[in-house]
């Protein structure tokens, strides 16, 4: 087997690096040579995150490559980012939107990267048991709650089944949706006040929910924000129109108006 070049791309925070690290370690345990390189921009969170993984039978020396053999795309913004890193021979797995499938299996949205890992693993010459062992060890080392570890394991297995069913031909990277997170604003109002959020700017930080003096705000998992995570929603009956949420929202996603 020649050097197999795997390029993973997703939003910072989607867990792209975790996938890369697990593949790297599992490949090594599986008797292959493997080298992994993370790549991200200056932001701690929110830039597009890339992970380069190479798997080979012969020794590997250079951590970076230009054209991937297997390209995985997890978010719309990656499409532009990876445009120079694949050619006609690259197998592309377009997993944008696959987070939705987690709900069917009652899995937390935080396990999306393990679902992706499951799908990807179907296209790699790595033993399932070794990957599971590696991912469990990794999550346990992070001191994550046992239920979440088993959720992650379940997500992986669900992903693997999905991977088996995916067509073997390459996916397209034509994404008709908007890559800039434009979403419709959502409004709640009554005769005294008006509360509006722009979910496309909500990063799910939770400060508004925490600071609301009348506990009118909560998370709505049905409306995803910048990273696909739940955004704020308002119980207008409890809202007193004070506008503190508007003031403390770091992205200016919320607007509150008192009516005369």
């Amino acid at each position: 087997m020649n050097n197999l070049k795997v390029l993973l791309s997703g939003e910072g925070g989607q867990g792209v690096q975790a996938i890369g690290q697990i593949l790297n370690e599992a490949a090594t345990k599986n008797g292959f040579e493997s080298i992994y390189l993370p790549n991200f921009g200056v932001e701690q969170r929110g830039g597009v995150s890339l992970a380069y993984v190479q798997i080979s039978r012969s020794p590997l020396t250079y951590p970076k490559f230009k054209i991937a053999d297997l390209l995985i795309v997890l978010c719309p913004r990656s499409i532009l980012r990876v445009k120079n890193y694949y050619n006609g021979r690259t197998k592309i797995l377009n997993l944008i939107g696959f987070e939705e499938k987690l709900k069917e299996h009652e899995l937390s949205y935080r396990t999306f990267n393990m679902l992706a890992l499951g799908i990807i693993s179907e296209f790699l010459p790595l033993e399932k048991e070794i990957i599971i062992e590696t991912l469990v060890k990794k999550f346990q080392a992070k001191k994550i709650l046992p239920e979440l570890v088993s959720q992650n394991k379940k997500a992986f297995l669900v992903g693997r089944v999905m991977g088996m069913r995916l067509p073997s031909r390459t996916h397209s990277l034509d994404y008709k949706g908007d890559t800039k997170n434009k979403r419709d604003k959502i409004t709640f109002e009554d005769d005294k006040k008006h509360w509006q959020i722009n979910p496309g700017h909500c990063k799910s930080c939770g400060i508004c929910v925490y600071r609301c003096p009348s506990k009118a705000l909560s998370f709505n998992p049905k409306i995803g924000g910048v990273y696909g995570m739940p955004t704020s929603t308002c119980d207008i009956k409890r809202c007193i129109g004070c506008g503190l949420c508007e003031r403390v929202c770091p992205e200016g996603a919320i607007e509150v108006k008192k009516k005369k």
Partner: peptide
């Protein structure tokens, strides 16, 4: 409310979720 001197096309910002810079 977003200040008039912000570039609307630069939102959402590059800052992490919950970063104090948003408020500042």
């Amino acid at each position: 409310m977003i200040p008039k001197c912000f570039k609307k096309e630069s939102l959402p910002t590059y800052f992490c979720p919950g970063c104090g810079y948003g408020i500042i």
